[in-house]
Computed example of a mutant assay.
Amino acid sequence: MIKLVVTDLDGTLLNDQHEVPKRFWDIASRLFRKGIKLGIATGRPHFSITENFPPIMAHVYAISDNGSFIMHDKREILSKPLPHEEIAPLVNTSRGITGTYPVLCGKDYWFLECEDKVLLEKVLIYQKNIKIVEDLTKVEEPILKMSVLDLKGADHHSFPHYTQFADRLKVALGGALWVDVTRTDANKGEAVQMLQQLTGTSPDETLVFGDFMNDYEMMKAAKYSYAMKNAYPKILEAANFVTEKDNNEEGVLDVIEALCL
């Protein structure tokens, strides 16, 4: 019996227009009526979850910033900011790579150094609360995640530059154009394990969905780990199952109905 369902958003539950499927709301209500817990695990900020899921925020476990921040019913469960001394080296690395933009992701705001149109277009998909600052290395607020927008493609262009941090930080591909950096103990898999402890749920009673490398650890935290049909190849390998339909065909919802409802 499934007692906990955790899903990624972009490329997973949401379609390519970043929209929540209309039949999701009925399925969520049915899950809650059966006593099944629901978590949303995303690289997006907490604001983006509250913006897109206001009717169910009192019930959902909101895992944001790749597992660096967890909220439930307006209560902060977990916060794991990056070590402050790592911010400047991370930002300066991006400054040395053409076609990239560093973004610092705080609890309430994302901090940018410029207002380039292409940067704003990409960022505003995920976070409306932004602050433009002269120098990101001078930001004093706690930073949950550092992201790099790479217009040339993150996998082969900017990601290799960040492997130098892999001995002390978690570096992951957050999407085709994004590199995400968090603490090593801040990832979606660790977050799912925390929810399992909080809710008295075992990995054998957990169902998770993901599509990209920031979902990798989550695939290892559940017996019923589903990679999306449209997932990155390494996620397809890591998951125990693969959805029959992709994110534009509501593949997540079909599996939830089949296994839980």
Score class of each variant (00 low, 15 high):
Asp167Val: 09
Ile130His: 10
Val103Ala: 04
Ser94Ile: 09
Phe159His: 10
Val139Gln: 04
Leu90Met: 06
Asp167Tyr: 01
Pro142Tyr: 05
Glu121Thr: 02
Lys152Leu: 15
Ser147Val: 09
Trp110Asp: 15
Pro89Thr: 07
Tyr109Ile: 04
Ile97Cys: 13
Gln164Tyr: 09
Ile97Leu: 15
Ile125Trp: 13
Lys131Asn: 13
Arg168Pro: 07
Glu86Thr: 08
Ala172Gln: 12
Val123Cys: 06
Gln164Val: 11
Pro142Gln: 10
Ile130Met: 11
Lys138Gln: 13
Phe159Gly: 01
Glu134Pro: 12
Phe111Lys: 01
Asp167Pro: 05
Phe159Cys: 07
Leu144Arg: 06
Asp155His: 15
His156Arg: 12
Thr163Pro: 01
Leu120Ser: 00
Ala166Phe: 08
Ile87Gly: 01
Tyr162Lys: 00
Val118Arg: 11
Ser94Lys: 04
Gln127Tyr: 10
Leu124Lys: 08
Tyr101Cys: 10
Leu144Gly: 03
Thr137Cys: 10
Arg95Pro: 01
Thr100Gln: 08
Leu169Arg: 03
Leu149Trp: 11
Val139Tyr: 10
Lys122Gly: 04
His161Cys: 06
Lys131Arg: 15
Thr98Gln: 15
Gly106Phe: 02
Lys152Met: 15
Pro142Thr: 04
Glu121Arg: 13
Leu120Gly: 04
Thr163Leu: 15
Thr137His: 03
Leu112Ser: 06
Pro160Ile: 05
Pro142Met: 06
Glu140Gly: 08
Gln127Ser: 08
Asp108Glu: 12
Asp155Phe: 13
Leu119Phe: 02
Leu173Trp: 01
Leu119Lys: 02
Glu134Ile: 12
Ala172Cys: 14
Val91Ala: 00
Leu151Tyr: 14
Lys131Leu: 14
Asn92Phe: 02
Glu141Phe: 03
Phe111Thr: 07
Asp150Gly: 05
Thr100Pro: 09
Leu173His: 00
Leu124Ala: 12
Glu141Val: 07
Leu119Met: 02
Leu173Arg: 01
Gly175Cys: 00
Ala172Pro: 07
Thr137Tyr: 07
Ala176Ile: 07
Lys170Cys: 06
His157Thr: 04
Val148Ser: 01
His157Phe: 08
Ile143Cys: 05
Lys122Thr: 14
Ile87Glu: 00
Lys152Ser: 13
Val139Asn: 05
Thr98Cys: 15
Leu112Asn: 13
Glu134Trp: 01
Gly153Met: 08
Gly99Phe: 05
Thr100Ile: 09
Lys145His: 12
Pro102Phe: 05
Cys105Glu: 11
Pro89Leu: 05
Leu169Ser: 02
Glu134Met: 10
His157Ile: 12
Ser158Cys: 11
Arg95Leu: 12
Ile97His: 02
Gly153Arg: 13
Leu112Ile: 12
Tyr162Gln: 07
Tyr101Glu: 15
Gly153Tyr: 13
Leu120Ile: 10
Lys152Ile: 13
Gly175His: 04
Ala172Ile: 05
Asn129Pro: 11
Lys131Ala: 14
Thr98Leu: 15
Tyr126Pro: 11
Leu151Phe: 03
Glu140Ala: 15
Asn92Tyr: 03
Asn92Val: 04
Gln127Asp: 07
Met146Ile: 14
Gln164Arg: 11
Phe165Arg: 06
Pro89His: 00
Glu141Ile: 01
Arg168Asp: 00
Lys107Thr: 05
His157Glu: 02
Phe159Ile: 04
Thr163Val: 14
Met146Gln: 09
Glu134Phe: 05
Ser94Ala: 13
Tyr126Met: 05
Lys107Trp: 06
Lys170Gln: 13
Ile97Ala: 10
Lys152Trp: 14
Ser147Tyr: 08
Leu149Thr: 08
Ile143Glu: 04
Arg95Gln: 13
Tyr101Gln: 11
